[in-house]
Simulated scan of single mutants.
Amino acid sequence: MSDVVRLASAADHLILERLWLMFRHDMSEVDGRLPNPDGGFRDEWLRAALVDADWAPYLLVSGDRPAGLALVRGVSGPTRVLNSFFVVRGARGRGIGLQAAQEVVAKHPGQWEIAFQDANSAAVRFWRRVAAKVACGEWTEEHRPVPQRPDLPPDAWISFSTLA
């Protein structure tokens, strides 16, 4: 399989906005959030990824078609965080997600943290599999409260290093 990840450019912003809407819609099943009155979802992370130099927005592609997105924050800091990761439903089950996660992590060697929700059983299996493949040595998993959301169960966080 060829590369499925590329750094998003200004020309990709509309595509990322559309993918973001699909991502947040999928996540609403897990976090119970409804769309805003205008039909959109909160998008401050996407907006930050498009303008902040400490973020890296990636477009996942399958051939010439958009297949998902990945937003990384903390690219210049000691720990990178895979803030958002999404593969469109039509591209799932083809290995695109696993390859994309590996490619994104490889672009930013060092310490990593990835959060997911225990209620999202596919994400639990997926992120543990990713950690086992990309971590140099051991990886850890812990639960942390969701900031400003005491009504939600804690997020699971996987931490690992890609440096030996």
Rank of each mutant, 00 (worst) to 15 (best):
D3P: 12
V4H: 05
V4A: 12
V5W: 00
R6D: 10
R6N: 12
L7E: 15
A8G: 08
S9E: 14
S9D: 14
A10Y: 13
A10M: 13
A11H: 04
A11E: 10
A11W: 03
D12Y: 03
H13D: 14
L14K: 13
L16H: 00
L16M: 08
E17Q: 15
R18A: 15
L19V: 09
L19K: 01
M22Y: 10
M22A: 13
R24P: 09
H25D: 11
H25I: 11
D26A: 06
S28G: 06
S28R: 00
E29L: 14
D31K: 10
P37A: 13
D38N: 09
G39P: 02
G39W: 01
F41G: 07
F41D: 05
F41Q: 08
F41S: 07
D43V: 11
D43M: 13
W45C: 14
L46D: 00
L46Y: 01
L50M: 09
V51N: 08
D52K: 07
D52A: 08
D54K: 03
W55G: 06
A56D: 00
L59K: 00
L60P: 00
V61W: 01
V61G: 07
V61R: 02
S62P: 06
S62Y: 06
R65S: 15
A67F: 01
V72E: 00
R73W: 07
S76G: 15
R80Y: 10
V81P: 02
L82M: 15
N83D: 12
S84V: 09
F85D: 00
F85W: 04
F86E: 03
F86D: 04
V87T: 06
V88W: 02
R89V: 13
G90D: 11
G90Y: 07
G93F: 07
R94L: 15
A100C: 12
A101F: 01
Q102Y: 07
E103G: 10
E103D: 09
A106I: 10
K107R: 15
H108W: 11
P109N: 05
P109R: 07
P109A: 09
G110Q: 06
Q111M: 07
W112H: 11
W112G: 03
E113G: 03
F116E: 01
F116S: 04
Q117P: 04
A119L: 09
N120D: 09
S121Q: 11
A122C: 06
A122Q: 08
V124N: 05
V124L: 10
R125N: 12
W127E: 00
W127Y: 11
W127T: 06
R128H: 14
V130T: 05
A131Q: 01
E138Y: 10
W139S: 13
T140A: 13
T140M: 09
E141L: 09
E141C: 08
H143K: 12
H143N: 11
H143F: 14
R144H: 12
R144K: 13
P147Y: 06
P147A: 11
R149C: 10
R149H: 11
P150C: 12
D151N: 03
L152H: 03
P153Y: 02
P154T: 03
D155G: 10
A156G: 06
A156F: 02
W157G: 05
I158L: 14
I158Q: 04
T162H: 05
T162A: 08
A164K: 06
A164L: 06
A164E: 05
